[in-house]
Amino acid sequence: MRFLIPALAAATALTACSQSAPSGEESEARSVNLYTARHYSSDEAVYADFTAATGIEVNVLQASGDQLIERVRVDGERSPADIILTVDAARLHRAEEAGLFAVSDFSNIDGIAANMVDPDGHWVAFASRARVIAYSNDRVEAGEITSYADLADPRWEGRICVRSSGNVYNQSLLAGLIAHEGEEAAEAWAAAIAANLARAPQGGDRDQLRGIAAGECDVAITNHYYYAMMARSNDEADRAVAAASTLVFPNQETTGTHVNISGAGIAANAPNAEEARIFIEYLLSADSQRKFAEMTNEFPVIADSQWDNDVLAGMLPFTADDIAIDVLGENNAAAQRVFDRVDWP
């Protein structure tokens, strides 16, 4: 695997040695306890391949990000968690603030951008998703929208679909705006979006795309991979929804498009810390990065990863915001306060 880093290569070699041990010698079974907020088939495939490559079994506990954080926090030193894996910078920040991560050195991972690694060594990203704008092919002209700021224009009044302010993806988008432009400018933008809503926020990102296809709104804010899921779906209705809109990767001439992550860190009280490190490194291997791109439609975080996904490839190239991901988590509380002040539902 092209991006297999030394620790994983060594672990694989050790596994191979143990399998060829003299008759009568039994190698000790190894396992890792994964607490994950993800629920994708790509991840299950990665787990199976990881075990096949290393001999390390993966025990999975799955729940929402906030539930996982609370579970590990309450269990304290008794927690069996080896790895905490979740989506969005805000949740990673909450886990970090609760003291749930061990300090690790992820600096030896080749090909990953510096902003994708926590500067204090608590977590590392392994997949990314862009927060983009979709517009109706029938009711919006190409070029009308090129930035997030464009959505604040009064001409979009009654035309925007977006999830609620309680959604962590929206919170991180606003956290990024706060970092770039300050809280006052971010609040003005959020107030304008709230005034331009076509309907009260409802559902997930795919529901915003369905709103465009149904004529309920002309523009929506969504994560890119939800659009890709629908465009590549076996369901004809989902493909029709995707075909009704076009994506814009905003802010290409300024800060770049807002990007968030899925990330993982070793738990502070991990009973199997070495196995946890090997697993996290495997998430960044060439084969795992390929699976995230092909099966989940996420962008790999390792430069020059190879994968086959025409819809995803069609979104490239674009300039991503290179803001440090940990800043998004740090600004989450401020973003929530802004949403409350402007009455974004």
Rank of each mutant, 00 (worst) to 15 (best):
E274F: 05
H93P: 00
G265Y: 01
N332T: 13
Q252Y: 00
E181C: 00
R38K: 04
A89R: 04
S104Q: 14
T319L: 12
E274D: 15
G55L: 10
S128Q: 15
V132H: 11
S18H: 06
I84A: 03
A240M: 04
S79L: 05
P80M: 05
D235C: 01
G121F: 08
A286G: 12
D322C: 01
A125T: 11
G111F: 04
A191G: 12
A53F: 10
L177N: 04
A240D: 12
I280M: 08
L209A: 09
L209E: 10
Y47E: 06
R73W: 03
L316F: 02
M1R: 08
L34E: 01
S23Q: 08
S262K: 02
P201A: 03
N59M: 10
W344E: 02
S107A: 08
L312R: 03
V219Q: 05
D304R: 10
L100F: 10
A286H: 08
S31K: 14
E275Q: 15
R337P: 00
G256N: 07
A244G: 09
L8Q: 06
E187S: 11
G314R: 03
P80A: 08
G211L: 04
D120F: 07
P154V: 09
V168S: 14
V162E: 06
P317W: 09
W189A: 07
A334K: 11
G166F: 01
I160Y: 08
E44W: 09
I193L: 15
T51C: 09
D304E: 13
E183S: 14
L68D: 03
F318R: 11
A52Q: 14
V140K: 08
I280Y: 07
I261E: 12
A37C: 04
Q289G: 03
A152C: 07
N170G: 12
L174C: 06
A240W: 07
A81M: 05
N108S: 13
A185Q: 14
D120K: 12
D66L: 12
A125G: 10
S233H: 10
V301R: 01
V124T: 13
A334Y: 00
A186N: 05
R341G: 01
A194F: 03
S64D: 15
A29Y: 01
L312W: 02
V162K: 10
E44L: 14
Q19C: 00
E157T: 15
A244I: 06
R210E: 13
Q19H: 11
D118T: 08
R91H: 15
C17F: 09
N115G: 00
G111Y: 06
L284T: 04
F3W: 12
A186W: 05
A231P: 01
T12R: 13
F106C: 03
E25H: 08
V132L: 12
I83T: 07
T15G: 14
F318T: 07
S136A: 13
A134Q: 10
D66K: 11
F299E: 01
T54P: 09
A102Q: 12
A7M: 12
A125N: 06
A16W: 02
S27H: 02
E184Q: 14
P317A: 05
